[in-house]
Simulated scan of single mutants.
Amino acid sequence: MSYVGPDFDPPQPRRPRRGPLTVALAALVPGALIGWFVYEAVGSPGGGSSAHASSASTGSSVSPTSTASNDDKPPGPSPLKGKVVVIDPGHNVTNFQHTAEINRKVDIGTNWKECDTTGTSTNAGYSEAQFTMDVSHRLKAILEKQGVTVKLTHDTGSPSWGPCVDQRARIGNDAHADAALSIHADGAPAGDRGFHVILPASVHAGGADTRAIVGPSAVLGRGIASNYRRVTGEPFSNYVGDGTGLDTRKDLGGLNLSTVPKVFIECGNMRDGKDAALLTNGAWRQKAAQGISEGIVSFLES
């Protein structure tokens, strides 16, 4: 055997030399692996998980700890948008200064009647015209908040008197109103209490023809009577309507000449002490407007 001493190693097989590309890959792979592990541990640059990063890349704002809410959606259009209501505040505070004008007769189909009247008042001097204008403004504000278009037949200071009953009806007709209401308060003897709603009778005479509106006006009137009583607590009239709170008439120009569903409401008796105490109270008048509005809205939604 040949001797192999400590200072002598046998010759080893020669290894092939590494090329430049091999060296580069060997350096990059460990770095890439380290970076991937760090990314998975820490998360995306936005601080979320890889799932969050995927959502962010698609533009989604939903995170793992939150869900979409309907509260963020803008409110839809009011179901009453486009509906038109005409409110007719009974009488005018300055009618008493224009007696010649308001006493002029106008044709209401069944007969001729005064253009308008002064209305009544409480014993303390609070006029029906003041009451009707106040309730009309309150009612208008409530309905407009629900998307309804509201028109008044007249407003404070304009016109200076009237308008005549035939013109009041025409305003509702020209507006193609979905509903029209004339607001009043009664002047019956003391002891007569409560409210009533006046419905149009079936009239077909002269320039009056209510046949098409009798049915829908009755629906409107019943809805107003029911809601007004519930909200205000005011009882049905004890002197008109036989306890039903409804009365049908054919001698009112504002109803006879209307071509749209229309009713009158006598909100209470100004000459009765108990009713007068309510009619002169602002908080109660707000209830009156609320009750009327709920009746109108129920009709518009039907």
Rank of each mutant, 00 (worst) to 15 (best):
G187I: 04
I171Y: 11
E234L: 12
V214S: 03
A205D: 08
I198L: 14
A169K: 05
A188D: 14
L181D: 03
N238P: 10
F195P: 00
G223H: 15
A185Q: 02
I183K: 00
G172A: 15
P216S: 12
H196V: 08
I213S: 03
N173C: 09
P235L: 08
G172Y: 01
G191Y: 11
H204D: 12
S226H: 13
G172C: 05
A201I: 05
P200K: 08
T232M: 04
F236V: 12
A225Y: 01
G215A: 12
A179D: 15
I198N: 11
V219T: 14
T210R: 07
S217W: 02
I171F: 10
F195T: 01
A201W: 11
R170Y: 14
A177V: 09
H196L: 14
A185R: 03
A218N: 15
A218P: 00
G215E: 05
G172T: 02
A208M: 07
D209F: 09
P189T: 14
D178E: 11
D192N: 13
D192G: 10
V231L: 02
S182P: 09
N227G: 00
A185P: 00
V203N: 08
H204M: 06
T210K: 09
R222I: 02
V197A: 06
I198A: 13
A177I: 06
H204Y: 10
A205K: 15
A188N: 13
V214L: 07
A180Q: 14
Y228C: 03
A179K: 07
L220C: 12
G194W: 04
P235E: 14
V203Q: 10
T210Y: 08
A180M: 14
A177S: 13
H184W: 03
G206R: 06
G172P: 02
V214T: 09
G187P: 06
L220W: 03
L181Q: 05
R170M: 14
A180E: 15
D178G: 06
S182I: 06
A185E: 03
S217C: 11
Y228V: 02
V231R: 04
I198K: 13
L220N: 06
P235T: 12
A212E: 06
F195M: 06
P200G: 09
G187M: 04
G206E: 03
P216D: 09
